[in-house]
Amino acid sequence: MRSTTDLTTTVTTALTTTALTVGALAAGLLAGAAPVAAAPPRLGPCDAGQLCLWVKEDFRGAKRTHELADVDVDSCVPLPAGTTAAALANRTGRPVTTYQSAECAETGEFETYPGGGTWVPQSSYQVRAFKVWES
């Protein structure tokens, strides 16, 4: 009987604590307090005229930079074998399509980003190649 009483006390205490926490949160929201949210990732540094690709999400890890002067426009540019990108910034001034396929095949995932200044902290696939478009 004693263990049942201890269990009942523990459950009652846990439920009361949860109710107080939820009640305090609701009261704060009703009083106009904003809910606490995770801070958005900082934009990765990428200069005008560049396409910047990061190995890790949220603009972390090694960064690979490509400039229009070094890229054949309208041509597939594969990343070095065995490397991928998980985040990117397009500041080329031209549309850029990133590809899951290292051959820019449209059978895998791909997406085009405008060139006026697009930051993508988390690609929905591992980028293995890209193509810069004329316009």
Rank of each mutant, 00 (worst) to 15 (best):
S124R: 14
T10Y: 05
P40F: 00
D70C: 06
A24S: 15
A24Q: 15
V77S: 02
V73F: 01
P35K: 01
A87V: 05
S3A: 13
G44S: 07
D6V: 14
V11F: 09
L43G: 13
S3K: 11
L53V: 11
T18E: 12
P78T: 05
L88N: 09
G49N: 08
E67F: 04
T18N: 11
V96A: 06
G61Q: 02
C76N: 07
D58C: 04
R91E: 11
T92R: 05
G32R: 08
G49L: 09
E134N: 11
P45M: 00
L7W: 09
T17I: 12
L53F: 04
T10W: 04
Q100W: 10
V55P: 08
T9Y: 11
C104I: 13
V73Y: 02
L43T: 13
D58F: 10
T9P: 01
F59D: 05
A26E: 11
R94F: 07
R128P: 07
V11P: 04
S101Y: 02
C46R: 02
F130I: 09
A14T: 14
Y113I: 01
V120S: 09
N90H: 05
D72G: 03
T10N: 01
E57D: 14
A89L: 04
P35H: 01
S101I: 01
V120E: 13
L53A: 04
A31Q: 12
C52T: 10
T65V: 14
N90K: 09
L43E: 14
T16A: 04
T12G: 12
G28M: 06
L53S: 06
L15H: 02
S135L: 12
V77F: 00
V71S: 06
P41H: 04
S75W: 10
V77P: 00
R2C: 02
N90G: 06
T97V: 07
A62Q: 14
Q126A: 15
T13L: 15
F110V: 06
